[in-house]
Design a protein around this nucleic acid. Sequence first.
DNA 1: TAAAAAGTAAACTGATGGGTGTAGTTTAGC
DNA 2: GCTAAACTACACCCATCAGTTTACTTTTTA
Lengths: 208, 208
Amino acid sequence: MSAEHSFDARLTDRKRAAILAAAVKEFQAKGFDNTSMNRIAETAEVSKRTVYNHFESKDALFLAIVQELLDTTEALPEFPFDPEREVADQLSENAWRIVELFTSDSFQGLVRVTLSRFLMSPQLAQETIGDQKRFRVRLVRWIEQATAAGRLKANDHELAAAQFCGLLESAIFWPAVFGLEPSPSQQLKDDVVCTSVEMFLARYGIGE
Amino acid sequence: MSAEHSFDARLTDRKRAAILAAAVKEFQAKGFDNTSMNRIAETAEVSKRTVYNHFESKDALFLAIVQELLDTTEALPEFPFDPEREVADQLSENAWRIVELFTSDSFQGLVRVTLSRFLMSPQLAQETIGDQKRFRVRLVRWIEQATAAGRLKANDHELAAAQFCGLLESAIFWPAVFGLEPSPSQQLKDDVVCTSVEMFLARYGIGE
DNA sequence: TAAAAAGTAAACTGATGGGTGTAGTTTAGC
DNA sequence: GCTAAACTACACCCATCAGTTTACTTTTTA
């Protein structure tokens, strides 16, 4: 028999993946401090020693997870200003991307796990959660370009971007993080994107 | 000598206060799990046994702190809509109150401590951080009243309130929580309140 | 097919930390 | 001043848990 059901990869790789998956699950469920390596090994259906063969320490395992999740959410495309398209249009599209990111399981996982661990150490938090800034940078650039093209009137581009994100976050992101609404309805997302764009343009837009 | 410098109270009460203060300090600095009762006793300059004489357990101590901090931030006044005053005026005032709350040390302390502990248990997090909702309720009511009075055009009052708070939070509150800017400048606060009110009214206001 | 690489089970170490028990000292209040 | 309540120092119990060791089996690979 060539393989039982190991369409996947070498055993070693499968074990590694199982450990990461188990760790994500446990860390998310109970937090870093309240998750033991024994438990992770158990959940991964792997011997404890194997966990330590793959990851030097609990911290190393944690960082590997954060890195993996960061990589997952990394692949957001650039979003340059397009002079040919309507401002509202582009902003809506950008808003949708952000909302989708916010509500994606992987990003939620990242935030929950990381937030609880690094709330106390701003340094580390910045390096990891700094991810949250990463898409904001794109938005800032877009706002800058749009302003330069005379299609927006924003003085403080950073602030404008922060505010736009804030509009989306307060209604979509944070409620989800705190488990109020498991996943916001399409209806709500629609409303939020819509009114956010309207509000933003009401303040920073040029009557087009 | 009537008293050395014990203008305060009975020794017992001073001890209790010292324990609470030490616990707040330690929990804020290192989080719940990474703070030992030994350390708290040490910081409070109190014997460990005394800590346990005042508080049944580490959890009890934690809850006492949360309660105390909640009480501190509890005393926010009602904010009814006043038909005699300009809408922008009232909204600005409300925004200022919220910003002041956000940047107050006691509130920051509450959030840091509570967030890190209860991020994993939405139930508890809601009851405690739900405080954050408490002022939002006032804002929701204000928006409702203003809308009823024909001075605003908001369909979803909850959403509108969330968005307004989001505008303030993303620029003031969260950066402070994550220790980026220890305390935002008066200038920034001004800008944020100003543009937030403008944005909000641009969308929900009636051209007055 | 044999050696090298990876996995397993389970007992173990060492440290931490919540919480208790005790015996003796200090403070409060009558 | 004397008693009860509160505080202190410190040893102690016990559970948890990160990480290790050992002796052995399975998988990979060349």
